[in-house]
Amino acid sequence: MFDQSPPHGLPHCAGVGYKPQHFTQIMENAGSVGWLEVHAENYMGAGGRPLAQLAALAETFPLSVHGVGLSIGGEGPLDPDHLARLKALCDRVKPASFSEHLAWSTHDIGFLNDLLPLPYTQTTLTRVCAHIDQVQDLLGRQMLLENPSNYLAFAESQMSEVAFLTEITNRTGCGLLLDVNNVFVSAVNQQTDPLSYLDAFPLDKVGEIHLGGHDEDTDDHGAPLLIDSHGAEVADPVWALLDHVLQRAGPRPVLIEWDTDVPDWTVLEAQAARAHTALATVQA
């Protein structure tokens, strides 16, 4: 068990999800951006530009390696080849943080390239904890686990998501990555109160905060259905929830995620500047 509370690693300032098209601007003038996050799987090739850029970034910025393919919630065992690639990447880049998702994405037939949901039961709790133990033992470090965006619920769930995540941190010593946009998306979709979720959340275990954009749709009955798209500016209610979290938790590393329809650097940097401002009000 890895007990490193409160979680530490990344600086308590604004970061952005790295996109290769922004490399030159980031290296010349990163503005309000104090650290970068990369998706682990994009840097598991043998060589070429991705690895060269990552090496250059790692010399200049604290890095967060964020996995999107480990399938920690999968029913089957973790893929040993993927674990080995992850260890090699972390040994090479020495990131300030490693995080993954409370989700599954791999099944017998292959990798499904989406973060799929889990029921919150004793069975899944035991399995997820065993997988996190395995990852932390292999990497020799604490990892952060991210809360999902939910579009539906499992009738078989026996506990709340917050209770589930809290129990995971207690059993494994992992930290949490609090995605505030996911909290908002899930609350709207499940017709619950995001503030109640955040007030119950173990904020002392939060080593990183994510912010991203979402799309709006409706469900079968015309009720609002938000889709976590990472393809737009962070919505105002999500910024308000960020303020709420920062006031209670104090400053934390805050990341802007923008993965589809990636905008010009100036748009992304402006979002980071807004996060920087939100952090400054609690840092004083």
Partner: peptide
């Protein structure tokens, strides 16, 4: 068993 807030099956979700 995949349900919406009213406990109904949720195809669009």
């Amino acid at each position: 068993g995949l349900i919406d807030p009213q406990g109904q099956t949720a195809p669009k979700r």
